[in-house]
C-alpha cells in the first residue's frame, strides 16, 4: 500500500467494502456510524414495543384510540414533505443552483419547526386528557419512542441551520457538498423512523 493510500484509508476493512468496489458512501463515514447507532437505538425501542404488546395486548389494543390521530397524520405528512424538500435541496446543490438549494433547506427547517410545535401540542393535549408516562405500558412505550424522536428532529433542525450558514458562506458547490449530503441522509433516517413509529402507535391495535 502506498503512503498516500494508507493516509487516506483506515485499511481495517476488507477491500470489497471499499467505495471503489461497493459504491459511493453518501455523505461521509462518520454520519453513517451515527445513523447505524441511531437505527440500533430505535431497533431496541421497536423490540421493546413488540415485547410489551405481546405481554399487554389489551392495553395496546386500546392505546391508539386514546391518541390524537389527526396530529399523528399531520406530523407524518410534514416529515414526508420535509424529506421531499431535502431531496430537492440535494438535487439543486448538484446543479450549482445554490439559491434554490437554500430555499429548500429553509422549507425543510420550517417543516421541522411545524413538527416540533405539533408534537408539543400533542404532549400537552395528552396531559389535559390525563395521560402520562405512568398511565399504562402503552403510554410508557409511546412517550419513550416519540420523545426520543422529538429530540432527534430538534437537533437535526439545528443542524439544518448550521448547513444553511455553511452554504451561505460558500462551503458547498456541485463538486463538494458532503456535509450537506451527510445532513440529508441523517434527516431521511429520522423520517424513516417516524414511518415505523406512526403505524405502531397510532394505527395498529
Amino acid at each position: 500500500m502506498s503512503s498516500i493510500e494508507s493516509s487516506n484509508t483506515l485499511a481495517i476493512f476488507p477491500r470489497r467494502w471499499s467505495e471503489k468496489e461497493a459504491g459511493r458512501v453518501p455523505g461521509n463515514i462518520p454520519i453513517w456510524v451515527g445513523i447505524l447507532s441511531e437505527l440500533t437505538e430505535f431497533g431496541i425501542f421497536f423490540t421493546a414495543y413488540f415485547i410489551a404488546k405481546f405481554n399487554y395486548p389489551e392495553v395496546f389494543a386500546s392505546g391508539p384510540l386514546s391518541l390524537n390521530t389527526t396530529i399523528g397524520v399531520c406530523n407524518t405528512i410534514i416529515l414526508l414533505t420535509s424529506s421531499y424538500f431535502m431531496a430537492k435541496a440535494m438535487s439543486n446543490v448538484r446543479r450549482d443552483n445554490l439559491k434554490k438549494c437554500e430555499r429548500f433547506l429553509w422549507l425543510t427547517f420550517v417543516c421541522a419547526c411545524m413538527y416540533l410545535c405539533l408534537k408539543t401540542y400533542e404532549f400537552n393535549w395528552n396531559d389535559v386528557q390525563g395521560y402520562s408516562t405512568k398511565t399504562n405500558e402503552f403510554f410508557t412505550v409511546y412517550y419513550y419512542m416519540t420523545f426520543n424522536h422529538f429530540l432527534h428532529v430538534g437537533w437535526a433542525g439545528c443542524a439544518i441551520l448550521w448547513v444553511i450558514f455553511r452554504l451561505r458562506s460558500g462551503a458547498y458547490s456541485s463538486k463538494e457538498h458532503s456535509g450537506l449530503e451527510a445532513l440529508a441522509v441523517y434527516w431521511h433516517m429520522i423520517d424513516l423512523m417516524w414511518i415505523l413509529i406512526f403505524p405502531l402507535l397510532y394505527v395498529l391495535r
Binding site: G23, S83, M86, A87, M90, A184, V185, H188, D191, L192
Partner: peptide, 8 residues
C-alpha cells in the same frame, strides 16, 4: 429520497 439506489 436517501438516494441509496446506486450508492454503496
Amino acid at each position: 429520497f436517501m438516494e441509496l439506489k446506486g450508492a454503496n
